[in-house]
Write a protein that binds this DNA or RNA. Structure first.
Lengths: 403, 403
DNA sequence: GCAGTAAATTCTAGTGCTAGATTTTCTCCG
DNA sequence: CGGAGAAAATCTAGCACTAGAATTTACTGC
């Protein structure tokens, strides 16, 4: 069961690495910090903290500020050295390489987006075109930030396909997945960036981590064209050997769901079905050209009290409730976070789904909420993961030369 | 995402503890070992290994054998000290406190069962009766082993109810669960045993761990009266905040399953339904008194070619396939291990279910197998967990006085 | 300006670990 | 019997960490 630690690194280095990471984590997001504060936060002895800070300063991650008392809330005693993280020490790139759209962001080590660029992409584009679009979007974003490639140290790319570590690669099992991840991990090899490709729902889960209020078990549910879930258990994102944890094709087997289409696809199809069947007389939906009709119209109409749209929305809520029930029933989740481009409009649907949960769950302790991260969750998660990647390897890396 | 380590223990003690555990783990199951072998296995320096062995010897976990060269395969050089684990240094108790039956085992630190006792239990028994039965079975087993309570250091009790760590206790949410776990964690407090109560399916998963061929993602599926799964992801048993990971009430929502009854219950009910409907003419099942008819009869009859029984078995296979599909589709499992008292008879059902998997799974990389641990899996898992519990706390504990 | 006090830093001794040099304890072989 | 050779154990120096003593730096009140 307990698979034991890596066991190759001599214990002493391991501890050093761990301590450095803990100090860095403490300093990373916040205000300048004194050694005493770090001692309290990490539980390390003063000498240890000071030695680590010195090393991290030498390596360029921290700066020593000497306005010691200036900002400190105390007046007595010897003024402390203060160390501050340098968020501009390096840049990271986060990309949402979706089916229809590639969105790239350049961010500092706080995860603050400095510049971005998104390009539309024909869903039918071939592998070469997809790669080119990603390169293009990233190139524009970096240029727009007024920075150079050499300042970037890591890139994370989100794709709508499972990304596994063992067994047959996803791309060889499914041509769609091959297309969605056309060798992206090598895309920036020549620039020396650490590049990680990750499933989009998993990145959404990473993005929601800080909004999880420390919930140790939750799912980030992408609900647009297809369902997809990024699943965090015991505080850590779970991927599975083939990267397929949270793949939701299995919804085909769930009663009242029956297929794995997302809420967006479902809203569109159900509305059209009603129109086609002539059951939308008097509905504002009948005024929208059939080809243009999509989820947004339906949600808006339902909000305005349209009966036909309301029916469709009820259907969405029912489906969402069942999906949440299956996920949380099996995985004992504290929370399901509904997210993706559609999420901001889904408040009423989620509210209704919440009310339906007790029909399916014996003990509905799960909390279903709408993400407040907006439409760029995946990209946000990519940036966040890139930042974590850099942080966890801080001691291995020399910072890029300035400017 | 990364929730950080415990961060209270000073780093240096942490390392010591980790190293001790690694050494202990290496010695635990096997033959006498030399320091050199431990160095190779753990990657620690010679001085470190020797110091640890000395301490573990002082504390009574190991003995130093000086028949140095006698057993060693080499003839040259200075003969090495050899250390051997003392499996009799203490005893553990493992209990399967099921709905109908309580089965207790006393085992040594290798997990070898020294004595056992099981008692039948009326499913309607109240909390006091259940507690008494457990105490009774354990008492008899210890006596039968010819040992005393003082030699036992840990007990693990498996119950057919979720065992959580946060939120409302399972017992307060469901009276059945309250009955199944009637305050068992305090049962041996007066004897000073470390007592752990754990869900039965989770214990089955623990028991299957060594048979998992190192599979990092698998489920142990109890299939008797109700379905229940113990789920191992990334090499570690996942419990969930409320201990409800792998709870399968949610099967109500799966098409073609529709309720969470296990294969045993299903076989019985389906066979009776056919009898009642008069559709069992010519079947050997018609010869069995209706009240006595159960899964065993059905499986045996199907094995002998009985058509009606065959129909029922097909139904079981269909259901099992769907359950495996849901579990592995959502959790990216390498393996589902069908286990429990019925498992040995389920070979043909599993075989058929395996053939049905591709109907439900896009990429059926999961391997469905029958456990070969026999009917006492849960108790075996309980013993195993108790042993692991003792091992992981070896340095904290003084061994009980002998005899 | 000088004690008194507070809060930081620096210093010191001690522990666990590592790596490598040295010593011990064997067998083998002339 | 007395090396040569091999493998283990022991010794030594050095590093990371801890805990606590000593020291530094600054403000406060007299």
């Amino acid at each position: 069961m307990t698979h034991g630690a890596e066991a190759t690194t001599p214990s002493t280095h391991l501890v050093r690495r761990l301590n450095a990471e803990r100090v860095l984590q403490e300093v990373w997001d916040g205000e300048p910090v004194t050694a005493s504060a770090l001692m309290a936060a990490t539980g390390l002895a003063r000498s240890t903290v000071l030695a680590l800070c010195r090393e991290l300063t030498d390596r360029g991650w921290l700066v020593e500020l000497d306005d010691a008392r200036a900002a400190g809330a105390y007046t007595k005693g010897r003024p402390a050295l203060r160390y501050a993280f340098r968020p501009d020490a390096a840049l990271v790139v986060g990309v949402d390489a979706g089916q229809h759209r590639v969105s790239a962001a350049v961010a500092d080590l706080h995860g603050r987006v400095v510049a971005e660029e998104s390009v539309h992409l024909d869903p039918g584009s071939d592998a070469a075109a997809r790669r080119a679009s990603v390169l293009d979007a990233v190139g524009v974003a970096v240029a727009r930030a007024g920075r150079t490639d050499r300042e970037v140290v890591a890139a994370v790319l989100g794709v709508p396909a499972p990304v596994g570590t063992t067994g047959v690669p996803a791309g060889e099992r499914n041509p769609f997945w091959a297309l969605m991840n056309p060798g992206l991990e090598d895309l920036f090899a020549d620039r020396g960036w650490d590049t990680v490709v990750e499933n989009d729902a998993n990145l959404a889960a990473v993005a929601e981590a800080e909004h999880g209020d420390g919930a140790a078990a939750y799912a980030a549910l992408l609900v647009g064209e297809r369902f997809g879930a990024g699943i965090v258990l015991d505080g850590t994102l779970r991927r599975g050997p083939r990267g397929a944890i949270g793949e939701m094709r299995i919804l085909d087997l769930v009663e009242g769901v029956g297929r794995s289409d997302g809420l967006g696809a479902l809203a569109r199809d159900e509305a059209r079905r009603r129109l086609d069947a002539g059951r939308a007389a008097g509905s504002v939906l009948a005024d929208v050209p059939r080809d243009r009709l999509d989820a947004e119209h339906v949600l808006a109409a339902a909000g305005a009290g349209d009966a036909v749209a309301g029916e469709v929305v009820d259907g969405l809520a029912d489906r969402l409730a069942r999906v949440c029930a299956v996920l949380s029933g099996l995985l004992d989740l504290d929370r399901v976070i509904v997210t993706g481009a559609m999420a901001p409009a889904l408040g009423p649907v989620v509210e209704r789904a919440r009310a339906l949960l007790p029909d399916h769950l014996h003990d509905p302790s799960v909390e279903v909420v709408v993400s407040d991260l907006g439409p760029d969750v995946v990209r946000t998660g990519a940036v966040r993961l890139a930042v974590e990647h850099v942080r966890s390897r801080a001691l291995d890396r020399d910072l890029p030369a300035e400017g």
